[in-house]
Write a protein that binds this DNA or RNA. Structure first.
Length: 553
RNA sequence: GGUCCUGUAGCUCAGCUGGAUAGAGCGUCUGCCUCCUAAGCAGAAAGUCACUGGUUCGACUCCAGUCAGGAUCACCA
């Protein structure tokens, strides 16, 4: 990458200064080379002189002029230098350095931007993990897309990614689900029924009841056992959930059933191990975990006086199993309502001898929905929540993905349905996709006119006029992916693409590519190389985010 | 009350490891289609980066405190 090559040059100049006794090596590694925010301040700049000034107690501009003298000797990529502001050294590169990016993109094609920084590290991304009690709500939607985007980014950067969905289909929640279904089953047949006090009130329960009636008629009317109802509900709800996920092109490598932790004895063995370490004790007929000895304020119950474990115990056991399955990095994507469980799980992991630093929890804040300029009130209990399916029906998968990725996880996300539904303008999703479509259109046109899109090596790229912004963006694409991936921040890719689209649309209006009367053929050919490269970056960027790159709109 | 997140333009939000004159989209206002897609472009107006201190050559960014909003503090998951 360009910045890395430049950094090498800067570092060797720094060393030259040390060797020639101009300054000491105490500033080594403390300075940086970065892209200035404003135009006219160079392609890159370094703060070395300012960093050194503090350490060496010298005038920063004096150091800067010495540095400029050293840097000026480079003929490979530096065109000119200037000292600015408090002591920045601004570095202007030769245009040919940027133009070469087009070769790189053309050569790499669909894999441009992919890297191997992940070194095949085994990463487990756990996300969604919604229990089968109803259709996915928009809160789950955010999590599904955030988790999937993180997984895709990590794959792109050379990680060995495994996607897992953790669920529980036993226990009180499921009993209530079964009882709710039974009540609807009886209601539909005009028989007396009692609906559970905290039952699931959603319409979908009627659908489940109806399918039981269709299949078995009134055979279950006198069933004492709630299991057939629960089972049917779980089956249909899971089918519904995976259907919703499939519509967004989200798949999992594994669905991990909490119950298997009991069957395989992992729950018992965790308690046993903690007990051996003296971290467990009995009080009030319950079993407590000494989390206070692990940095927390108070101890927590892991087995209730009824003999049933609390949710913490299987959570801890589950994470131990993740470690035992030899993953190097565990990523949990949760809603912010799970915040209280995080310290408990990490305490458990630590107590069992695993490194909690290998667990990264991505907590995302809540989602609100705005329709007709007003906040839509949602309640899970009353089943007045909006489902992901409904959103998909209204605006389609690309828009849903884009909007859910647009904000960093830490921010609350307001899904503006009015804006999302606008298909004609103002919608950032189309702004980006339109960029790709426009470029495709130009390439189609070139083919129609029998203009061959030459290999970048044959075209005279020095004929490109004002392509700097675009070339720099293209060149920074791999770094953008890397930072978004390693920081688990997909929203940065969205912003990257929006910026690229802005630059492209601006260029498009300023410079025509094909015009046989006004534009010389070799200029057209050079611009077609640029067009092809930008199109490739759009396509790769959209693909990495799980969105489509339409060739026409 | 404790813990975590948030507070940046009228609205919704970026601002990555501190860097030069604070950024985008929407909204508002003014222009631009005999021309590769106007789902676009060019320009204008719009800010006490919640507040107060501190750290330093330099703070939206780091630290402490205050205020406001959200999440969470079970032998529910």
């Amino acid at each position: 990458m360009i910045i890395e090559q430049l950094l090498e040059i800067v570092e060797s100049c720094f060393k030259t200064g040390v060797n020639e006794d101009k300054w000491s090596d105490r500033a080594a590694g403390k300075y940086s080379v970065e892209v200035p925010k404003r135009e006219g301040q160079g392609d890159f700049s370094t703060n070395m002189a300012m960093v050194m000034a503090g350490i060496e107690k010298k005038n920063p501009r004096e150091i800067a002029s010495q540095l400029v003298e050293y840097l000026g000797k480079d003929e490979t990529m530096i065109e000119r230098l200037e000292i600015a502001g408090p002591g920045f050294v601004n570095i202007f590169l030769k245009p040919s350095v940027w133009q070469k990016v087009l070769h790189t993109v053309a050569k790499a094609g669909d894999s441009y931007g992919h890297s191997t920084v992940g070194r095949n590290e085994k990463v487990l991304v756990e996300f969604v993990s919604a229990n089968p009690t109803g259709p996915l709500s928009i809160g789950h939607g955010r999590q599904a897309i955030l988790g999937d985007a993180i997984a895709r980014l990590l794959e792109t950067t050379g990680h060995d990614v495994f996607r897992e969905y953790y669920f529980n289909d036993a226990g009180r929640q499921m009993r209530v689900l079964g009882e709710s279904t039974r009540a609807r089953y009886l209601e539909r047949q005009d028989l007396p029924f009692t609906f559970p006090e905290d039952g699931y009130q959603g319409e979908y329960i009627y659908d489940i009841a109806q399918s039981l009636i269709d299949e078995q008629g009134d055979a279950l009317v006198n069933s004492e056992d709630v299991k057939p109802f629960t089972k049917k509900a779980v089956d249909l709800i899971f089918k519904d959930i995976s259907g919703t996920l499939a519509r967004m092109d989200i798949t999992f490598d594994n669905y991990y059933n909490e119950h298997s932790l009991y069957d395989d004895g992992h729950i018992d063995s965790v308690v046993k191990e903690l007990r051996e370490k003296g971290l467990v004790y009995e009080k009030d007929d319950a079993v407590w975990f000494k989390t206070s000895e692990l940095g927390q304020e108070q101890d927590r119950v892991i087995i209730k006086s009824s003999g049933e474990p609390t949710y913490r115990l299987p959570d801890i056991a589950y994470h131990r199993e993740k470690f035992r399955r030899n993953f190097d990095w565990l990523i949990d994507v949760f809603g912010s309502d799970h915040i209280a469980t995080v310290p408990d799980v990490l305490s458990g992991v630590k107590a069992l001898g695993y490194d909690p630093d290998k667990v990264t929890v991505v907590l995302h804040q809540f989602v609100t929905l705005t329709r007709d300029g007003k906040l839509v009130k949602m309640s899970t209990r009353k089943a007045t929540f909006v489902t992901v399916d409904e959103l998909l029906d209204e605006v389609g998968a690309d828009v849903v993905r884009f909007y859910f990725m647009m904000r960093k996880a830490d921010s609350q996300l307001d899904f503006d349905l009015d804006l999302a539904k606008k298909q004609e303008k103002d919608n950032p999703v189309y702004y980006v996709q339109y960029g790709h479509a426009r470029l495709c259109s130009i390439l189609r046109r070139a083919t129609e006119m029998n203009i061959e899109v030459k290999d970048t090596g044959e075209a005279d790229l020095s004929l490109l006029v004002e392509p700097e912004e675009l070339l720099k963006s293209i060149a920074s694409f791999p770094a953008a992916i890397e930072s978004a991936a390693l920081d688990l921040a997909p929203h940065r890719m969205i912003f990257f693409l929006m910026e690229l689209a802005g630059e492209l649309h601006s260029y498009y209006n300023k410079h025509k590519v094909i015009d046989q009367e006004k534009i010389p053929l070799d200029v057209t050919r050079a611009r077609l190389c640029l067009v092809a490269a930008v199109r490739q970056v759009f396509k790769n960027g959209l693909t990495i985010l799980g969105m489509s790159a339409p060739e026409s709109m």
